[in-house]
Amino acid sequence: MRRSRVSLLLVAAALCLGQSGSQLVTPEIRRVGVHLGCLCGSCKNTVADCAMLECHYSKPARMKIIAMQKEGRADQAIVDQFVKDEGRRALAVPPAEGFHLLAWIAPFAVIGAGLVLIWWFVRRLRRPSETPALDARVLDRYREQIDRDISQLD
């Protein structure tokens, strides 16, 4: 029994060739990892969320975070170190400064522009000067028509 179990495990190990070791995401790693994008090229997750077990980017990144936390570095200092090593693409979201601020502003600027457009549209379509005063006789004719139509309903 023991022998067959060992052989089964070996088969499974062969199935998972190249995979070794799992990694746990502790709350401490998650706290820093949420600010860092996974640069594996396969996902759009953060280092904290990437669920690929042997991800070639997130796994070493988490190890690096653990090592720096053991050195007593602050969260921001760890993030800064990643930026120093990988460039600003290491960040999960564009930094809110310089040209990259545009990434954050543009979607809301579009909403703002849209609101202005709606305001202009509403004003244009509600222009009262285009609405003539209605003659009382015309109004009476319409009312009679409505009464006739209503009386024909069951």
Binding site: G37, K44, N45, R89, A92, V93, P94, H100, A103
Partner: peptide, 23 residues
């Protein structure tokens, strides 16, 4: 945006899930 950013600033940038979720 990553393509635009690279074309304008020459710097690669990531736009990952947190950006889309926040907006």
């Amino acid at each position: 945006f990553p393509v635009i950013s690279e074309a304008v600033t020459g710097e690669k940038i990531s736009v990952d899930a947190p950006f889309y979720n926040r907006v």
